[in-house]
């Protein structure tokens, strides 16, 4: 039992996903390692272009090829390396063991098939039950995610649903097979603020109800992270800069980038400020990454070594990892 708990549900090691863009290699994900434990909500935070979406797609091996390709690393899900599986074996994992919710509910559903068709299709594919059973299950799932009059609404096409309802339908589809891992790639970004909270509550609630289910939540919204996650990884420039349990991260960020991100949030304790501080500069082009620390150019604490060599991701405190020379005992 003890051993089971220790062994993570998903273990990503040194994942590298590169894209070929106009003859150049863009290292969208370059050596990412993290793990997600059973019953855990794991957050992946970063600006747009930091590689967090590509990381999540890599887990399901949904990287469009060409131009992208997973060039190295391993993704162990319950002990099997997903990157070693054949396409057919991979198919059985997708939707069934690991399912995914996408950012754009508007386009993520096929416009020419009914919601019911798309739900039933998923359920029948993995459970092999007959049509009527699957329909009952589909209606059940729809009402579970809070869509009233679910049986009737199975006949509707996606365009007849509002954005929030579509995302609910997506969640229903993703959870209909009780997957062990739910990957949510910015599930609330495209929605209205009021609906964002509902959807988030719904997902977390359903995740808690389902025994042994974990969630990988990808977002750029630190408030969402604070509310929902147990552990967080901060990504920048295709690399993880800091991994930490959520409370210490917010109380005592280790990486200057994390500090900057937190500073840019409004904070009741800080009293009245005229302007929220921002991180100067922009994310470096994915085709033209600096040689040393990826964040060096924008870092307030930058020193010589930062430009020369890239720091390693090392454990600074128990359970807390950071990629920064500032925490390097030898370096400072």
């Amino acid at each position: 039992m003890d051993k089971e708990l220790q062994r993570p549900l998903l273990e990503v090691r040194n994942l590298r996903t590169y894209f070929q863009v106009e003859g150049q290699t863009a290292k969208a994900v370059d050596g990412v390692s993290f793990e997600i434990r059973e019953n855990e909500v794991f957050g992946l935070v970063g600006e747009s272009g930091s590689g967090k979406s590509v990381t999540s797609l890599s887990i399901l091996r949904l990287i469009p090829n060409p131009p992208g390709d997973i060039v190295g690393g391993s993704i162990h899900f319950r002990g099997t390396n997903l990157l070693d599986l054949s396409w057919d074996e991979m198919r059985k994992i997708r939707g069934n063991r690991i399912s995914m919710i996408f950012q754009e509910p508007m386009t993520a559903l096929n416009p020419v098939f009914t919601i019911g068709f798309q739900l039933v299709e998923t359920i029948r594919l993995h459970t092999g039950c007959d049509k009527t059973e699957a329909r009952v299950k589909a209606a059940e799932m729809l009402s579970l995610v809070g869509i009233p009059d679910a049986t009737k609404r199975l006949e509707d096409y996606p365009h007849q649903f509002s954005g929030g309802m579509r995302q609910r339908a997506m969640i229903a589809m993703a959870l209909s097979l009780q997957p062990n891992l739910l990957i949510a790639d910015e599930p609330t970004t495209a929605l209205d603020v009021t609906i964002q909270a509902q959807i988030l509550d719904l997902m977390v609630g359903l995740q808690k109800e389902t025994d042994g289910a974990s969630m990988l939540l990808i977002t750029h919204d630190l408030a969402v992270v604070a509310e929902t996650c147990q552990r967080v990884a901060v990504m920048y420039g295709g690399k993880i800069q800091e991994i930490s349990p959520v409370i210490p991260l917010f109380e005592d960020p280790l990486h200057p980038y994390t500090k900057g991100l937190l500073m840019s949030l409004p904070h009741p304790d800080r009293g009245k400020v005229n302007r929220l501080p921002t991180i100067p500069g922009i994310v470096p082009s994915i085709l033209n990454m600096p040689k040393g620390c990826k964040f060096a150019e924008r870092c307030p604490d930058r020193f010589e070594r930062c430009d020369l060599e890239e720091p390693e991701l090392r454990e600074i405190q128990p359970g807390r990892f950071c990629r920064c020379h500032l925490h390097d005992e030898e370096g400072v």
């Binding site: 949904l62 198919r91 416009p111 098939f113 299709e121 998923t122 594919l125 589809m173």
Partner: peptide, 27 residues
């Protein structure tokens, strides 16, 4: 084939043939 819903269909674990010849082709 580059549309989001095709990615969804793959993420659901549908076989490639069904994704192409049912979902993408119908559209």
């Amino acid at each position: 084939l580059g549309a989001d819903y095709v990615r969804t269909a793959f993420a659901k674990g549908l076989p490639e043939r069904r994704v192409i010849f049912l979902h993408a082709l119908r559209n």
